[in-house]
Design a protein around this nucleic acid. Structure first.
Length: 416
RNA sequence: GGAGAGGUGGCUGAGUGGUUGAAAGCGCUCCCCUGCUAAGGGAGUAAGGACUAAAAUCCUUCGAGGGUUCGAAUCCCUCCCUCUCCGCCA
């Protein structure tokens, strides 16, 4: 959620933002609702104030005067109830719409409406020349380390079994990334993956992306699609000490996504599945330093890609392709030989105060409290990195071999 | 899953219908005092919101939501959370 004051103070910023995000939203209605809400509140407050004053006098009154006062207070009480109800409704009407207003896009984010308009910032690493590259599924099945067929019988489509060396690689990768982040001052976290509705609202996944989230209706819980949710909510409703910022966390968790609306997209293998493991960086940052922090998180993502010697490019996501909570977002896309394309393996967003406002996370500076900025970035999306590693290091016979430095990270030299 | 206890300000903790947004203590800030330190004295110390140029003022908040009442931290209902005991369990 963005600051409601912007609606009356800086309407033009909102106008421009809506344009840049290619949204069809009328501000007029919101402005009216906002005015109604303020007016309603004032009216209710005023009458309530009268009522409170009168009811304080009542105990010192006697006889007829008391009767009179009681009667008047009763009437006031009724109108307070009425006006409060009206004010609450107005408030609700406004916020219902207001929470859907996405974050203000950063000046430096490129314009555009879709993925195709994202701006390529740099390409790093050489694309390997592989004749007739096999895709990761073919490689993985032959090596006996990925089984989606039986997973489909057990759980349905878009699930997988990782087996044998794939599992060793996963644990080695995770361990390596967590240590790397720990050394950089991130606190490693294994967060809850089942959360309450509130955490999802707070992070901006609800109400917009609710259809992507698995729910456990019996217990009113939801499976997180990323540990960003539980990491962000970790400091909900609190005031963080300014000199302790930025607070950095590295969360490892399984992630669950319904992938509704992606029928026919990436149907083969484990590129797009309902369940995968991920190490996520999350930072609670002061408002002045969040841009810097954003670059810092991106630099770590690149460091990881480079250490794994995966060819990749960095993309600055355009305004129209940005999620609601982000003001700016970088994606790293790894080269996928079987597709002859760069595909997303990480995503790094600055969500400024969009989440902190909803989660009520503040800091105090010079006696004034401000909403802090939050940022998130993928350190390691296990499944997709595994795909990139398999495909980019494949041999013609379907085996996979890693050079020494990569082997020292993944823990083995050859898959055969 | 069964039985019980409890949730009050940064913390400890008093408060069962009427200037209680909240005693007291701790902590913190400022001032005074003592050569320094230790000790002592005094003042201040929640958040959010409306309106403001700013202040004043007003409103909300004692786990959350609802109810009773002229008036609720205090009474009633629902939910959440924490703790103790029993059972079960990686």
């Amino acid at each position: 959620m963005i600051d409601p004051n912007i609606l009356k103070d800086n309407t033009e910023i909102l106008e421009e933002n809506i344009k840049r995000r290619k949204l069809d939203i009328s501000l007029e209605e919101l402005i009216t609702l906002d005015e109604l809400r303020r007016k309603g509140k004032n009216e209710a407050d005023e009458i309530r104030s009268q009522q409170k004053k009168l009811s304080k006098e009542i105990p010192s009154l006697k006889g007829a005067k008391k009767e009179e006062a009681l009667e008047e207070a009763g009437a006031l009480s009724n109108s307070v109830k009425e006006l409060t109800k009206k004010a609450d409704d107005a408030e609700k009407n406004f916020y219902e719409k207001w929470v859907k207003i996405p974050n203000i896009v950063d000046k430096t984010s490129p314009d555009g409406s879709s993925e195709d308009d994202n701006k390529e910032l740099r390409i790093i690493g050489d694309i390997p020349s592989i004749t007739k590259p096999k895709n990761h599924l073919e490689l993985g099945e032959n090596l006996g380390i990925i089984d989606v067929e039986q997973a489909a019988n057990v759980s349905g489509s878009r699930f997988s079994y990782l087996l044998g060396d794939a599992v060793l690689i996963e644990f080695n990768l995770v361990n390596w990334v967590i240590s790397l982040l720990n050394n950089k001052g991130f606190t490693p976290v294994v967060p809850p993956v089942l959360v309450r509705e509130n955490a999802l609202y707070g992070t901006g996944f609800f109400p917009d992306d609710a259809e992507q989230v698995y729910s456990i209706p019996n217990d009113d819980l939801y499976l997180v699609g990323t540990s960003e949710v539980s990491l962000a909510a970790y400091h909900a409703e609190s005031i963080l000490e300014d000199d302790k910022l930025p607070l950095r966390y590295a969360g490892f968790s399984t992630c669950f996504r319904r992938e509704s609306g992606t029928y026919g997209k990436d149907t083969s293998g484990i590129f797009r599945v309902h369940q995968f493991d991920k190490v996520e960086m999350f930072s609670f940052c002061s408002t002045e330093k969040s841009k810097e922090e954003h670059e810092f998180l991106l630099s770590i993502e690149e460091e990881i890609m480079q250490a794994l010697e995966l060819p990749y490019r960095v993309v600055d996501v355009c305004a129209g392709d940005l999620g609601a909570s982000a003001t700016k977002k970088y994606d790293i896309e790894a080269w996928i030989p079987s597709q002859q394309k760069y595909r997303e393996v990480t995503s790094c967003s600055n969500t400024t105060d969009y989440q902190s406002r909803r989660l009520n996370i503040r800091t105090k500076k010079d006696k004034k409290s401000t909403f802090i900025h939050t940022l998130n970035g993928t350190a390691l999306a296990v499944g997709r990195v595994l795909i990139a590693l398999l495909e980019n290091n494949q041999n013609e016979d379907g085996t996979v071999s890693f050079n020494d430095s990569v082997a020292s990270i993944v823990g083995l030299e050859k898959l055969s």
